[in-house]
Design a protein around this nucleic acid. Structure first.
Lengths: 232, 232
DNA sequence: TTGACAAGTTAACACTGTTAAGTATAATAG
DNA sequence: CTATTATACTTAACAGTGTTAACTTGTCAA
């Protein structure tokens, strides 16, 4: 009678009295099962993302397809839709990864120096070299899908460093240190960003300007021109 | 017997002794017929081109399709292939039209002034305003299909003015006039072109920079910065 | 054991560029 | 005047795309 009054799961708990996590065995199994399946789900999601990243870089924006991704990970194309709402969201994740690396590169440039003007130079260099080193990502981020830049990062990604803020901060520091002419930092930042983008984007997408030494040459001129305009 | 010895076409010629173009009547009919059909063919080709132009601007690079063009002119999609080898060639013609207008705009800027520095400013303005006014063409020409810039113009199009040469000439004039610092004009030209492209391209394709007054502001700064760097 | 839910697949739709084959019509040759 | 040939164009099809709906299968809970 006592046995009957005792709920069945208590019996199961009595069967394994070793020190374990809370709950009955079946509860523990259930918990582990769900976490296992969550892990599997997350793993598949990551597999999709890494395959997408790879294939995107390999084939470029125009020739990147969901069916390729599906084939690469050994799943049917529609499986991707269980993890991403559409191709756009998947591309956005690739872009966010790019923004993350881009922001880190700029931050590293900032951190590599202490003087504001030196920092500005370093940031510019980092920008320039990121573009030339990762043209497919760069094109996606700033040429093909520029609207991604404003879209907030998805929940499953850490928000990338705000690259633009790094530039603004550097300019502010320069003005505060009396090394950059006082002025609207937003204007300055726009000027810097847009002009350097011109050099990078043409260098990576127009054969006419594709020669690396040309780009390097132009960047040297540009750097000097900018310094003369901004610095006191 | 004389009649028999005379070739039949001579008889036809005798039938219409009025002053006309060379040959027999049948020859004349034939000639007119072929020219008429050539005209029809050329008309259809032009119809394809204008429809393509229109639909391209309307729908943009990504959503422009041959089937749309076919529907617009009331022909089957495959008819286009009788006049253009593929979609790419059609797009190229659209781009060439863009290059033509672009070159003319720059040339007009050049012609509007006599002083080399004023010419440089005018050319820059023309560049800037062309980009903002024709973003879809600009993107095609300098962002999406940059390789078109180097491809020689097709036979049925007059070659567009070489925009880059206008810039180079202006810089050379400036140096010759002692108003621009001596230096490698190719380097100067690259610097000017690439930086101004940055402003234009971001203004027309990144919402972050899309604000017109922002672009105008940045361009003002840019213009001043360039003048200080290049001019004596 | 049944029923619900999850994961994944298949089939299909509406597109795309592009090619091959077929069909009228007009021009030409005998 | 008829037979043939070339021209202009279309239809059908292929291989590919993103995307949706319906279906199957396996796992878990009651």
């Amino acid at each position: 009678m006592a046995k009957q009054s005792a709920p069945p799961f208590k019996r199961a708990a009595a069967k394994s009295p070793t020190l374990q996590s809370e709950g009955t065995r079946s509860e523990r199994i259930q918990a582990k099962s769900t976490t296992r399946r969550q892990k599997q789900k997350a793993a598949l999601r990551r597999a999709i993302l890494t395959a997408a990243e790879e294939l995107f870089v390999e084939h470029g924006y125009e020739n990147f397809s969901l069916r390729q991704v599906a084939e690469a990970i050994g799943y049917s194309p529609t499986t991707i839709y269980l993890h991403f709402s559409d191709k756009d969201e998947l591309l956005f994740h690739v872009a966010v990864e790019g923004f993350k690396n881009f922001g880190e590169a700029l931050q590293a440039g900032y951190d590599s120096e202490t003087d504001p003007v030196a920092r500005l130079t370093a940031i510019g260099r980092a920008y320039f070299e990121f573009g030339l080193a990762h043209p497919v990502h760069y094109r996606l981020m700033f040429m093909q899908r520029g609207e991604f830049f404003l879209r907030p990062a998805p929940d499953d990604c850490e928000a990338p460093i705000d690259s633009f803020t790094i530039l603004i901060r550097t300019l502010e520091e320069g003005i505060a240190a009396g090394k950059i002419k006082p002025g609207d930092v937003a204007d300055y930042a726009n000027l810097v960003w847009m002009t350097i983008h011109g050099i990078v984007s043409l260098a990576i997408s127009m054969p006419y300007f594709a020669d690396k030494t040309y780009a390097e040459n132009t960047y040297t001129h540009y750097s000097e021109m900018l310094k003369r305009y901004l610095c006191i």
